[in-house]
Design a protein around this nucleic acid. Sequence first.
RNA 1: CCCGCCUUAGCUCAAUUUGGCAGAGCGUUGGACUGUAGAUCCAAAUGUUGCUGGUUCAAGUCCGGCAGGCGGGACCA
Length: 319
Amino acid sequence: MEEKIKIIKQSTVEVIEEEELKEVLSKEDPIAYTGYEPSGKIHLGHAITIMKLKQLQTLGFKIKILLADYHAFLNGKGSVEEISEIAEYNKQCFKGLGLDETTEYILGSQFQTQAEYTNNVYQLATLTTLKRARRSMDMVSREDENPKVASTIYPLMQTVDMAALECDIALGGLEQRKIQMLAREGLPKLGFKPPVCIHTPLLHGLDGADKMSSSKGNFIAVDDSEEEIKEKIRQSYCPKGEVEGNPLIEIAEHFVYPFEDKLIIERPEKFGGNLELSQEELIETYGQGNLHPMDLKNAITNYMIEFLRPVREYMNSQS
RNA sequence: CCCGCCUUAGCUCAAUUUGGCAGAGCGUUGGACUGUAGAUCCAAAUGUUGCUGGUUCAAGUCCGGCAGGCGGGACCA
């Protein structure tokens, strides 16, 4: 039990609340869920949550992935029809990332218009202030000079999703935090037990922006070609000696060290020759400016090409 | 339902009281400099001026209609 909790907490920002997690772990068939707005590209930011879901899967959780087509629609991403096509592509990406056959993929529009569901949304609407609903969307809402009423329905639906999917854990990136907290407050009022909320860190964009996001083009997609990976990393923001907010250091933390003890860096003799660095050594060496950004970039490029190989091969086999 | 205002490059905005070749900053792209990127310097690309009809030699600019947005009024006896 303690061991499981330790694994679950690994490389997350927070677990709310840990005591409740213990209860969940003692259940027979616990359910973990994450919702994704269908997106033109599935990138490394998404991959962080998918890897956590894979981990939960190995710990005995039933995984439900919500392909939140209605949410994307409410967020102004296109027509429901267009979005559901993208959802199908996203599903393939998720499978390519290694979620197993027991994973359940659920299209939001399949259940989000049912009478009971809708009634719960209306109930919640009477219990939630406009400002609170708007505020919860701070990090999620598409930028809009003229915000729509839809953006306030969104968090209400996300709350009711948790009840409808009967999840014990709601996993998401840190940008989901305010909605998740709204949900934990709202669900008891509707007579439901709120899930344990687990938040994973946000990856900085390759351009150094606060957040990797599909709308800004500052991401590596999980199905990018080897050439695209090389080119994107080559162009990435990577100040020498700076660890904080450095997307390449973050990629090493999240996509190399969970699987390898040492990061292997191939470096020309004239710059000091090859290196093998543990996570701590990488932070220290790079932070002192003793590892050139280009050597780091080359190393990360090799690892990412290998890490994403299964996804590329899976996607190719599907088309 | 009525009145007023707004709509120009990907973004923010210019374009002379009085119609005369549609511009800048940011961003993007390319080069220079760096053993990366960024910063800096140099260079380039980018437009159905919301749509539509009219006036005029000539319309972003004036007139009509429409759409979207913002604000107000009215309705609530």
